[in-house]
Design a protein around this nucleic acid. Structure first.
Lengths: 222, 222
DNA sequence: TTGTCGTTTGTCAGTGGCTGTCACTAGCCT
DNA sequence: AGGCTAGTGACAGCCACTGACAAACGACAA
């Protein structure tokens, strides 16, 4: 956090700072472009560095590893969602707040992403993550961390202790599970639009209740 | 599949086969022992191979990578659980079958694991996985694959198409989420016994309902 | 027993991700 | 202007992992 204080967030970035940000953004964009065109495994770090004309060592000074650059945008999106959740009114029930936060997050995704990469590139990258085992693994682990953060957030909201009451973690885990199924369904479907995943999210959240009802044989599916 | 037929599963393993199994088991045990004593990252493949007195190349002929050997026992346990689930009577409601299969799985965990490694070593390894980021990531991804298998299994049981009806995948994802929270809670708790995780499993499954109820502020806690 | 065959294994060489070190350059500050 | 420090490139090295080939060894039959 650069600006913990009050107003003026950008007194003067300084030349060094600007140069750094430009290098980082360039690396990120180059990496994503290479990943989505020739695949994650078939892209080497040397290639990415060369595309931006820096040394391999410099790449590793900006990103902890190949994985991190691949998941950087996803990270931004999750932060966007958590921010959205923090903004929900305290009166809302936990699951209601979660639901509204995600749907709101999709509606405003542009604000969070477009400044660094085009949304379309983000969506392509999302699908690549789902279909690349090592990326999917890393993504799932990071999601688990985000879930822990959200669980603490909700527990605080409701005045509970996350270590003695299992309900916050359980609820968040369940919610996260639904989000994951949604994302997977979207990425293997046909409609790769933003509206599609937004609609899927709403639909699947509505289906959780029925899915947990014992008898699936009466009245059914999508 | 060596023995697809009916009875006699072990006519005569043959010397070669026995030697192979012995090498594999030795590698597995040595790896787990090293991992749990000095940590996963601080253990090299060369070390493991040397402990069994084979070449590094041979290690990679038995295991696809360092990750695989670390998760091998976990894999056996999950297979054990899926087997247990397949044995549930068709009349049971899906979630009921899942619940009974897991609890049953814990009760009979010895049969599935003890022949290869002591159960105690498995439990230690379980905790190591939870606390080692790259292992946790790989574990979560494999769990996702198992969940897909289970979803198809349940869908078949109930006569549904897993691709048009979201409920099987949703239910399994929710169930898996609860199991993960359970495992995490167990591994960070104090009682590392088998009974402890068994009891936690039952308790957390009972808490899912309440966790999804909107109002946590009335009556709660562990 | 001996010879042949196919499998298992070791050796060697190489790739790619990632890290430590060190010297150099270029912003920044007084 | 000149010193301080952050950012960088060049180089060397570790470790996970793979392909290729030859040697060792078990299986089986003559």
């Amino acid at each position: 956090m650069e600006t913990a204080g009050t107003a003026e967030a950008v007194p003067r970035p300084g030349l060094r700072e600007r140069k750094k940000r430009r290098t980082r953004d360039a690396l990120l964009r180059a990496a994503l472009e290479l990943f989505t065109t020739q695949g994650y495994e078939r892209t080497t770090v040397d290639e990415i560095a060369e595309a931006v004309d820096v040394s391999q060592r410099t790449f590793f000074r900006y990103f902890a590893g190949k994985e991190e650059v691949a998941l950087a945008v996803q990270e931004m999106v999750e932060e966007h969602f958590v921010r959205s959740l923090r903004g929900r009114p305290p009166g809302e029930a936990p699951l209601e707040a979660l639901r509204r936060a995600v749907l709101d997050g999709w509606d405003t995704i542009n604000e969070a992403v477009a400044s660094v990469v085009p949304v379309e590139l983000y969506l392509r990258m999302f699908r690549l993550i789902e279909s690349t085992p090592v990326l999917l693994a890393a993504h799932l682990r990071r999601s688990a961390e985000t879930e822990e953060e959200i669980a603490r957030l909700l527990a605080a909201r409701e005045g509970l202790d996350v270590d003695t009451d299992p309900r916050p973690r359980l609820a968040v885990a369940v919610f996260g599970a639904v989000m994951r199924v949604t994302g997977r369904q979207w990425s293997t479907g046909e409609d790769f639009s933003l509206e599609a995943i937004r609609a899927l999210t709403a639909a699947y959240l509505d289906q959780v209740g029925p899915a947990l009802t014992g008898n699936w044989r009466t009245s059914g599916g999508s």
